[in-house]
């Protein structure tokens, strides 16, 4: 069974934000919620790098561990998803997540932040695959159609890789070998307890 992961090759990422709008396009994510975002480190200085970040679908996900109502589940493809019907908007997952992936429809926590929303790896939610109900709450389910997340598929420089962890790690390794440098698979150590030896 595939172990789905994201890998952002920061040496290729040019902060074009295609991943951000592709996500909005595919899942019709409202204004204010950014399931994916691009962060620029060392802005304006030599060594500047941009990294596209979203839910990394961690192995042994911290969000799932801290959820007081156990609304997370991991699919057979190792995608970390959650049920909005069960979520109570407590915010713990946001504090536990190393990547700031969980988002909430309301800004302050008066009463409720609302149901948590995050990257689904374009794999929808617990409703039936590609049903209108699933789309309404979680957006598209590309994985069920045999497609990968649109953010990675549309990445302008093919910096953002999605797919089976072994395969994308291999692609990254080959790139690094070919070009002779690499600033690392950002977040892998934290999310998957793995480094890519290059």
């Amino acid at each position: 069974m595939a172990r789905m992961k994201f890998l952002c090759d920061a040496d290729r990422c040019i902060e074009c934000n295609a991943c951000v709008t592709a996500c909005k396009n595919e899942n019709d994510v409202p204004w204010g919620i950014n399931r994916r975002r691009v962060v620029t480190i060392n802005d304006g200085k030599p060594g500047e790098r941009s990294v596209s970040m979203a839910c990394m679908h961690c192995t042994d996900a911290p969000c799932a561990a801290v959820c007081p109502v156990d609304c997370f589940y991991t699919t057979a493809d190792a995608v970390v998803l959650h049920s909005k019907d069960l979520c109570i908007g407590c915010g713990y997952c946001f504090y536990a997540c190393p990547f700031g992936a969980p988002q909430y429809p309301k800004a302050a926590n008066f009463g409720s932040r609302g149901k948590m929303d995050k990257c689904t790896y374009c794999a929808g939610g617990p409703e039936a695959d590609n049903s209108p109900e699933e789309f309404a709450q979680y957006g598209g389910n590309r994985l069920a159609e045999g497609k990968l997340p649109l953010c990675a598929e549309m990445c302008s420089t093919k910096a953002l890789l999605a797919g089976d962890g072994q395969i994308i790690a291999q692609i990254y390794k080959e790139r690094v070998a070919k070009r002779g440098y690499g600033s690392g698979a950002w977040g892998w150590k934290t999310a998957y307890k793995e480094d890519i030896a290059t």
């Binding site: 595939a2 493809d77 617990p126 497609k147 990968l148 598929e153 890789l161 797919g163 089976d164």
Partner: peptide
């Protein structure tokens, strides 16, 4: 889709199942 990431062949994804509460 993986085949398109770079010049690396790959067998199609076999997406299976999700847990349901």
């Amino acid at each position: 889709r993986l085949a398109h990431i770079d010049a690396h062949g790959h067998t199609p994804l076999d997406r299976r199942s999700f847990l349901r509460n």
